[in-house]
Design a protein around this nucleic acid. Structure first.
Length: 958
RNA sequence: GCCUUGGUGGCGGAACUGGUAGACGCGCUGGAUUCAAAAUCCAGUUCCUUCGGGAGUGAGGGUUCGAUUCCCUCCCAAGGUACCA
């Protein structure tokens, strides 16, 4: 009987589905294990061979854990809101829900074909109202919460209100908007309801704020940063402008420190941790306030702007953040970002023209321009001076575009001797560069080494090291009220509004301009139907096209927009949520996905706790993975989840790249020259379908001519009667024609071969090029494995069953040990080799013993589940192999009575000497010495001294 | 620039805490089987060599009896990040 993988695979996939073999229970005596792959966005292109890599790895580990006696949760679902379906809808008018449904069905077909042990009864789709009900619910929870810095956690907004009622906000330490005014309890109680709501919005964890977006008037839409190239839209090349829009934001900055600290507790890859650390960008230093020396002009202006007389005596203040407050005596100028709000106020009449020109010029430059052009030093003097808080010396105030408005306070104190950028700026504009470091030459460049710093020319800081000077200066700054120690983060709050159709609608309606939440019992608020998926003519988001999009507070339902009277019927929010909304808690929803009364039951979350193993791509490092950690910590603070990190271990699978095939067209002709001859001509490179190429890079010319019409009348210049293509490794993508489809591989070699081969390609975490040629190796392994079990049918052996020999047992246990270690270390690639060696050995040993073949089937089962099931049933079992206990490794089968000792001779010229295993060190020494003596006699030289080095080798030293 | 991860045959990649480098697979070469092909099986395959050996894990140094492995300097590639004060 031949290895008929098509029949076997179909048979067992059907069996698993019918018997719900992989359905996980939320109630089990077994220990739990939660293995998760990042769920996919179901794109129209379907899966290519790169997609399943991570799923296969997760599947192997899940199946292994099942064998090890764990109750395994291994779910799958779809991140089904997203842009491509919406773009398609804009072009064709087809509802994104239909496109999405079709794509999901295609994905499901492909996934089923690969034999994954998913519990499909738990499938989630983020675009499903029963699912996004809970995304909306979390949004409401965030709205009803504030971050209390004193308790260092999120709390319900009601606790904040009661603090306000008793004592105003003087003693509140919260993460809130910068412009929050201070008020007393009396003030608070006197506020109108709307005023109270406005204040609370400055504290809520999700809040409305005016945020700048990239607005493209021609497309009538908002673009993400990477949709803009050279200041114009990637699609169509239309101009893009910065525009303020009122949008929802998430106060992720409240969690900056905890997101950083949490990284120490989780087993995630170092590069990923680093990029999150980088992204959060913590820097320790101080904020320092400089007073502006007020001119008569400024004083007049102040009086004009602000009627309060107290303001007249109070000078303008410039707050800066610095990581080097110890160098404050080296300040010789200050620089403001051109966008800084003080610029207009402090510029002197003489400098006004120059400053205005510069500010205008900077505003025109795109961010990209500004970033690319790091070398050019530019800036303008404002004419104004600040006062040094200690020396009271005047400090000229400049503006310069090297200072960014979006980081820190948008102003820096420039210390040219200690910072290279300040140094370059000072040199360029002939500003003094006072040296405040002892014994350091600063004539060529700034000195920025903290470790060897000794401060000089700095009054009370003289002679101090960086560390001591830091402490001292912060204390002094606090004493005179000019600053304090401060930690600054690069992380910004996350904008949560998207001007799109295909996303979760916000459960929000507006009364008197203030947002109101819809009650849980009336959720989900379902996405309305619209005529078209583009923004409205007035520039409102696509939901502005909906005619049924108003909220009736009495009926608690969506009604027609015509009924809006701002008394009982109010307008609903028109934005939708971003892509990451639905993916930030899906891992918890899998625990109890059909629960309609709660996001998950307490029983479910208290059983599963968190994800034990999470596998997915590293591109989500600062998106999904950061936002999910943020929401998890919030859910933890609110007492909904028992763990404040959602995934204990995370692995980034590498990308499988494609190998594009390139033909070389002689410029301006229809002639194509073979790879080896291309240097003789001036050629242009064109990519052709990789399926037209054979193993030795030879092009099938006839097939090419039929592939695309432009090749029909092409001529080819051959080498050795062949046309050889060039190869290039790049991302697998339709546009490079280098996509290899798993369906075709499954058809030809089977899912088990594909699974084994994807693992065999190389280490899971590494990116590696796909090369179909090698799959024959793993496929022939499966055929050999099949043959090994040939004597068995339905549990009966044709012929006598042999007892396992010592050799059989050795081979088996060697394999158990290695495979178990490999799986635990996620080195799936090497296990495949181990299996090959094992089968080759057992074959040459002519092993037919059930005691060997049974455990071997279990070992193979996580990797190649279909064939393992079939072999298992041939050995006589009627139940699935999935729950069979993983074989136990026993050392005793590997132990031998004697061992070949490698002998090193001054570290070189090694030979082996077989000696009994239980010899002591001295006995080995004696034996080797005896051997050496005979050896030396034979070679006619003096014997060397023998030393036994503890460890694995015997060393002879001469 | 900075941070991170890597660099081993023609190719993908093995080598546990330093101990016979190149497992396993692909490809290639030769052979068996076959009328022939596919399939299968066996042998060989790091490089150089005067067949004694010699060199060899990006380059150069160091520690060690012994280094792909540890330390220093440099080069290269990939990913992240960037006038971050």
């Amino acid at each position: 009987m031949n290895y008929d993988f098509r029949e076997i695979e179909a048979k067992w996939q059907k069996y698993w589905a019918e018997n719900e073999t992989f359905k996980a229970s939320n109630d089990s005596d077994k220990p739990k294990f939660y293995a998760l792959s990042m769920f996919p966005y179901p794109s129209g292109a379907g899966l290519h061979v790169g997609h399943p890599l991570g799923y296969i790895a997760t599947d192997i580990y899940s199946r292994y854990k099942r064998h090890k006696g764990f109750n395994v949760l291994h779910p799958m679902g779809y991140d089904s809101f997203g842009l491509p379906a919406e773009q398609y809808a804009i072009q064709t008018g087809q509802h994104p829900a239909i496109t999405t449904e079709q794509n999901i069905n295609r994905y499901r077909e492909q996934l089923d074909q690969l034999g994954f042990s998913f519990d499909w009864s738990r499938e989630v789709r983020t675009s499903n109202p029963q699912y996004y009900k809970w995304t909306q619910w979390i949004f409401i929870q965030l709205f009803n919460a504030w971050y209390n810095k004193k308790s260092d956690k999120a709390e319900n907004i009601s606790s904040l209100i009661s603090i306000f009622e008793k004592g105003g906000n003087a003693n509140v330490e919260a993460t809130c908007d910068d412009d929050t005014p201070s008020f007393s309890a009396a003030d608070w109680n006197a506020f109108s309801e709307k005023e109270k709501q406005e204040i609370l919005l400055k504290y809520r964890l999700t809040y409305l704020a005016d945020t700048e977006v990239n607005w493209c008037p021609a497309l009538g839409t908002v673009l993400a940063n990477d949709e803009i190239v050279n200041g114009v839209s990637e699609r169509g090349g239309h101009p893009v402008v910065r525009k303020k829009m009122t949008q929802w934001s998430m106060r992720i900055t409240a969690y900056a420190q905890r997101l950083l600290d949490g990284l120490d507790k989780i087993d995630w890859p170092q590069p990923l941790k680093d990029s999150q650390t980088n992204w959060i960008g913590r820097s320790v230093g101080a904020s320092v306030t400089f007073n502006v020396k007020m001119t008569d002009e400024m004083l007049k202006q102040v009086q004009h702007d602000d009627v309060a007389s107290s303001a007249v005596e109070k000078p303008y203040e410039i707050e800066v953040f610095t990581t080097r407050p110890d160098t404050i005596f080296g300040v010789s100028f200050m620089t403001l970002a051109p966008e800084h709000e003080l610029v207009a106020k402090i510029t002197t009449p003489e400098q006004k023209t120059e400053v205005d020109t510069y500010v205008e010029a900077t505003a025109k430059r795109s961010e990209r321009d500004r970033m690319a052009d790091v070398k050019t030093i530019s800036g303008v003097f404002t004419g104004a001076y600040a006062e040094h808080p200690f020396t009271k010396e005047p400090i000229p105030i400049w503006i310069g575009d090297y200072v960014l408005a979006s980081y820190g306070t948008g102003a820096v104190m420039a210390v040219p001797c200690g910072d290279q950028r300040d140094y370059d700026f000072a040199k360029h504009y002939n500003i003094a560069i006072p040296n405040i470091f002892e014994g350091v030459d600063i004539s060529e460049e700034a000195f920025a080494d903290k470790e060897t710093t000794v401060i000089a020319n700095s009054d009370f800081l003289n002679g101090l090291s960086y560390k001591d000077a830091m402490k001292k200066i912060i204390a002094e700054l606090e004493k005179i009220g000019h600053g304090e120690g401060k930690v600054n983060y690069r992380l910004r709050d996350a904008v949560f509004s998207r001007q799109r159709y295909w996303g979760e609608p916000f459960p929000v309606y507006y009364v008197d301009g203030m947002p109101q939440m819809i009650d849980l019992e009336h959720l989900p608020l379902q996405l309305p139907e619209v005529e078209k998926y583009l923004p409205t003519e007035t520039g409102e988001p696509p939901l502005g096209n909906a005619t049924e999009w108003a909220w009736d507070v009495e009926k608690n339902e969506v009604v027609s927009n015509d009924l809006i009277d701002h008394k009982t019927v109010f307008p609903l929010e028109l934005n939708t949520m971003p892509g990451w909304a639905g993916s930030s808690q899906y891992f918890n929803r899998y625990m109890d996905p059909r629960n309609d009364d709660a996001i998950f039951s307490p029983e479910a979350i208290n059983y599963w706790h968190d994800v034990d193993l999470y596998i997915g791509g590293s591109e989500h490092a600062t998106g999904h993975l950061l936002y999910s950690r943020f929401w998890q910590k919030f859910m933890f603070d609110m007492g909904y989840v028992p763990k404040d990190e959602f995934a204990q271990k995370l692995i980034n699978q590498g990308m499988i790249t494609g190998t594009s095939a390139i033909v070389y067209r002689i410029a301006g002709t229809k002639k194509y020259v073979s790879f080896g001859l291309k240097s003789d001509y001036s050629t242009e490179e064109l990519r052709v379908d990789v399926n037209l190429i054979n193993v030795s890079n030879e092009l099938d010319i006839e097939a090419l001519k039929n592939w695309q019409p432009e090749y029909q009348d092409a001529e080819f210049i051959l080498e050795d009667d062949k046309y050889i293509v060039g190869r290039e490794v790049e991302k697998m993508s339709k546009r490079w024609y280098n996509v290899v489809n798993p369906d075709a591989i499954c058809e030809e070699y089977g899912a088990d071969s594909l699974r084994l081969y994807e693992m065999f390609l190389g280490p899971l975490e590494q990116s590696k090029p796909w090369n179909t040629a090698g799959i024959t190796g793993v496929h022939s392994f499966l055929k050999k494995l099949w043959k090994l079990y040939a004597p068995y049918t339905n549990g009966s052996l044709s012929g006598a069953e042999a007892e396992p020999t010592a050799e059989n047992l050795k081979t088996l246990h060697k394999t158990i040990k290695k495979v178990e270690e490999d799986i635990e270390n996620f080195s799936f690639n090497t296990s495949v080799s181990t299996f090959m060696i094992c089968v080759n050995e057992l074959t040459s040993q002519k092993c037919t013993s059930k005691a060997i073949l049974e455990p071997l089937a279990i070992l193979v089962s996580p990797y190649a589940p279909h064939i393992a099931e079939e072999l298992w049933s041939r050995l006589g079992y009627s139940e699935s192999i999935a729950e069979a206990p993983f074989p136990k490794f026993e050392e005793k089968y590997l132990v031998e009575s004697s061992k070949e000792y490698p002998i090193s001779f001054n570290g070189k010229m090694r030979f082996k000497l077989e000696l009994p295993l239980d010899m002591s060190k001295d006995e080995i020494e004696a034996a080797v010495l005896a051997h050496e003596k005979t050896q030396a006699q034979l070679e006619g030289r003096t014997p060397k001294k023998v030393i036994v080095v503890p460890g694995k080798i015997v060393n002879i030293v001469g």
